[in-house]
């Protein structure tokens, strides 16, 4: 019996699906007209160190002429030889690829046909927009690998710089955001700023999502119910602790406020898409720890923790 082992695809294999032809193709294509001569073909191939030239009539691709065609032509000098027109020597049925195809398809085509290059066609405009060789694919993959590598490097760099390189027994980064009550045009802006900083610090998308959603709900609560408040984010290497305080009316029954669907919001808040009694339950669901303290007429103190992973 044969055992089939499924290996996870390598980074390069993944990239061949991710990268599109238009990202690696050469956009500057040297072309010839059907009435050009084989002598011009010889000159262009030699001067540019290339091995094939697409032949276009206006913007329409009508053929391709390669170094092979030139060699055959030189071998038959008794006809017109080097002065013969390209249109009589070119391959008319040209194999092409579309600019929006993934690289993996093109690799397959190279394998199957054995050709050295494919002219690239724009699917919508049916126009020649580039040319692609195996060399272009290798170059494109290497470039992409390099930029991805740099991106990863930058992220770890910024985190390590802040958390590890400062000489201490521990490091906490504290960010403070002021939230104005009643300003619906800007409700969400502070969370947006916090989110951007967490991205810069290199936290995982899932961690950032949990923090962003919870902080957004907390920010909306402050904007809806209170005249002003503050959101303080304490960022540890392995967790994010958020604390919000406000000068609002407080929550008379904290336990009741945690029940999904419970709300004291007036209609105008509901019209904004909030105030359906899901805010606090949402925060509880997305965070690892949550505490809510409130006293009537003294404001509310909410804190929650999301562990990074």
């Amino acid at each position: 019996m044969k055992t089939v082992v499924h290996k996870a695809p390598s980074k390069t294999q993944e990239l061949t699906y991710e990268l599109k032809v238009k990202q690696v193709m050469r956009k500057k294509v040297i072309t010839l007209k059907p009435d050009s001569t084989m002598n011009e073909v010889r000159r262009i191939l030699r001067d540019n160190k290339i091995s094939g030239i697409p032949v276009v009539d206006g913007t329409r691709l009508v053929g391709i002429v390669t170094i092979e065609d030139l060699l055959i032509c030189l071998h038959e000098p008794e006809i017109k030889g080097i002065d013969e027109k390209v249109k009589n020597r070119m391959t008319k049925d040209v194999a092409t690829v579309y600019s929006d195809e993934p690289i993996v398809r093109v690799v397959g085509k190279f394998d199957k046909t054995g050709y050295g290059r494919f002219p690239v066609i724009d699917r919508a405009k049916k126009k020649l927009v580039g040319i692609i060789t195996k060399g272009d694919i290798i170059e494109g993959l290497l470039k992409k690998l390099e930029t991805d590598y740099h991106k990863e490097e930058n992220y770890t760099y910024s985190v390590s710089e802040i958390f590890k390189d400062l000489n201490s027994n521990g490091c906490i980064l504290t960010l403070i955001y002021k939230i104005k009550g009643g300003d619906f045009k800007k409700a969400g802006e502070q969370t947006s700023k916090l989110r951007k900083n967490l991205l810069k610090l290199g936290f995982s998308p899932e961690t950032i999502r949990k923090v962003a959603i919870s902080a957004f709900e907390a920010e909306m609560n402050i904007v809806i119910y209170t005249p002003e408040g503050e959101l303080i984010a304490k960022i540890y290497p392995d967790k994010i602790v958020i604390n919000t305080t406000d000068m609002g009316p407080g929550i008379p029954d904290v336990e009741e406020a945690m029940r999904p669907g419970y709300s004291t919001a007036p209609d105008w808040v509901r019209e904004l898409g909030f105030g359906a009694g899901m805010g606090l339950p949402n925060i509880k669901n997305y965070t690892d720890e949550m505490t809510l303290e409130s006293e009537a007429n003294k404001g509310t103190n909410l804190s929650f923790v999301v562990y990074a992973h």
Partner: peptide, 16 residues
């Protein structure tokens, strides 16, 4: 959605 306030955009951003 039928809601057109800026909070819809913030909601989108925060939930990815």
């Amino acid at each position: 959605t039928g809601l057109t306030t800026p909070q819809v955009v913030y909601t989108a951003e925060n939930s990815g």
